[in-house]
Design a protein around this nucleic acid. Structure first.
Lengths: 240, 240
DNA sequence: CCGCATCCGCGTTGATACTG
DNA sequence: CAGTATCAACGCGGATGCGG
């Protein structure tokens, strides 16, 4: 009777049976940003005890989502990293991540913030488009600077159609500077808010070459998360 | 301090704070297939008590994911249905559903099976493409018949670029008949398996007009879940 | 019957202490 | 540093009760 399961022949139920327990998907998110040691995971995840972490990692290993690998460098030891199947799972979390981001506070509260997470959210809203090919994929590539509320800044570099999120200022000068908060960004990505509308409401500002701005917005709204758009936008009613 | 939360400024953590508790996403899935009464939900979800169901529905209502509406018919009463925000969430579950479907048993075990769930899985792997527009969107439309292992049959009708899943045989004669099991279907949708390869291995068969088969496969592999394809085997270690 | 609240037993969790 | 052992607190599943 140890493991609790929904016992339904449904993909979602199965997914939740496998990785739906507490902390499991959070651990997958952590590893999506690169391999990590046990201690790193523990340090980064306040509230998660070492005992439960060990349990989760063991289970994820059994499910072929996570793999133990020899740690690089002189340090030695082991690191945990995603398998191919785990990487697919991490990407499958993108739309859910965006959805959750729509409900974040505009400003990150103190304490509970890491730049990694911001990169994960932004990356979630962009990554899929590279494989589809859009007008943004052509041309010499762009660089977009996102200035989020709270002072965080992230860059997105589009090179040959594949957008990449950078936490450090890239060599290239940004073609577009976008200023907004995370939930607004997510609302736009998910299709609940039109970017121009956001600009009119003062919730967002897009500066730079108009054509580049156009491509940046397409990158945001033409995404997989954007494909999951709301049927008829009723624009979250809070204007009045 | 009743509610347990991750307390991280991250979209995924926020999403799980809001809808990550047990049964919550399963309830959203149920309502994604149409409005339902309390009793219907309870009857369809073995193992979920009325108490917890009431809790979850109340919470989902507070989060603007679910809404109570007057029930139609002479029956009266109330039904629960998804809000716009809830509909976005339901769609955001598509890739996760496909991922989970890759790990279902080839044959549904007895007892734990409902046609609805099959439709949900299939719909998850198709829906997004309609909004992108593909070659399958042109022409007079197609009808694909999916014969899944275990005897279940589902049809997909593409009309004007928007694919729809049907549980009843449509008037139109199918242009393609695909015979395979659910995990194979999911493996193809997620990009872990090439459809032609699956055919060679005897895990799948696609019969019908070659051009229509081509369009059907494109519909499966060109999906949002397909965009979350496996990157490239190992390339995880960051060059620094 | 439908929609929910209350109570109880147990599995899951969170935090600390302890070991290789 | 990488886990295991322990235990108290919470969440969940099931049964029961109660007003429509």
């Amino acid at each position: 009777m140890s493991r609790r399961t929904y016992g339904q022949y449904c993909g979602l139920a199965r997914a939740l049976d496998l990785v739906g327990e507490r902390w499991t998907l959070i651990i997958v998110r952590e590893l999506a940003l690169g391999p990590k040691r046990f201690g790193e995971l523990h340090a980064g995840l306040a509230g998660l005890g070492t005992s439960l972490l060990a349990d989760r990692l063991r289970h994820l290993e059994e499910q072929d989502v996570v793999r133990r690998a020899a740690a690089p460098r002189p340090a030695g030891g082991v690191v945990y990293e995603l398998t191919d199947r785990g990487a697919v799972l991490a990407r499958a979390l993108a739309p859910l991540t965006i959805w959750g981001a729509t409900r974040l506070d505009p400003e990150p509260g103190e304490g509970a913030f890491r730049g990694d997470w911001l990169a994960f959210v932004l990356g979630s809203s962009l990554r899929p488009i590279g494989s589809v090919g859009s007008s943004a994929a052509d041309g010499p590539g762009d660089c977009y600077e996102f200035r989020l509320a709270g002072g965080a800044v992230v860059w997105v570099v589009v090179e040959g159609g594949a957008p990449a999120v950078a936490r450090e200022r890239p060599a290239r000068e940004p073609d577009v500077i976008a200023t907004l908060d995370v939930p607004t960004l997510a609302d736009i990505a998910v299709g609940l808010l039109d970017p121009r509308q956001a600009e009119r409401e003062g919730r967002a500002a897009f500066a730079g070459d108009p054509a580049a701005v156009e491509r940046a917005l397409e990158l945001l709204t033409g995404t997989a998360a954007g494909a999951a758009q709301v049927p008829r936008a009723e624009g979250r009613s809070d204007p009045s």
